[in-house]
Simulated assay, not measured.
Amino acid sequence: MDSTFVKYAFAALTALAISTTAASALEQNCRFIQAKPDREACYKRQEDELAAKRKPAAPAAESKTLETLQQMRQDDDAVYRSINNICRGC
Rank of each mutant, 00 (worst) to 15 (best):
M1D: 01
M1T: 02
M1H: 05
D2H: 09
D2V: 01
T4S: 13
F5P: 00
F5C: 10
V6P: 00
V6L: 13
V6T: 08
K7G: 01
K7N: 04
K7T: 02
Y8R: 09
Y8K: 14
Y8I: 04
A9P: 00
F10K: 12
F10E: 09
A11K: 08
A11H: 02
A11E: 11
A12D: 05
A12C: 05
T14I: 02
L16E: 02
A17C: 07
A17L: 13
A17Q: 05
I18E: 04
I18K: 06
I18L: 14
T20I: 02
A23C: 06
A23Y: 14
A23V: 06
S24A: 12
S24N: 07
A25Q: 08
L26T: 04
E27Y: 10
Q28K: 15
C30I: 03
C30D: 02
C30G: 07
R31I: 03
R31M: 07
I33G: 00
Q34E: 11
Q34W: 01
Q34I: 11
K36G: 02
K36A: 11
K36I: 03
K36E: 14
P37A: 08
P37I: 07
P37G: 04
D38W: 02
D38R: 06
E40T: 05
E40P: 02
C42K: 01
C42S: 01
Y43D: 05
R45G: 04
Q46W: 03
E47A: 06
D48M: 09
D48R: 07
D48H: 05
E49Y: 13
E49Q: 09
L50H: 12
A51N: 08
A51W: 01
A52Q: 13
A52S: 06
A52L: 07
K53Q: 08
R54F: 04
K55I: 00
P56N: 02
P56C: 03
P56T: 03
A58L: 14
A60Q: 13
A60M: 03
A61D: 04
A61W: 02
S63Y: 02
T65H: 12
L66D: 09
E67R: 14
E67N: 10
E67F: 02
L69W: 08
L69K: 13
Q70G: 03
Q70P: 00
Q70F: 14
R73V: 08
D75A: 15
D75G: 12
D75R: 14
D76M: 15
D77H: 10
D77Y: 10
R81A: 15
R81D: 14
R81K: 15
S82T: 11
S82K: 15
I83K: 11
I83W: 14
I83S: 01
N84Q: 15
N85M: 13
N85S: 15
R88G: 07
G89H: 15
C90E: 08
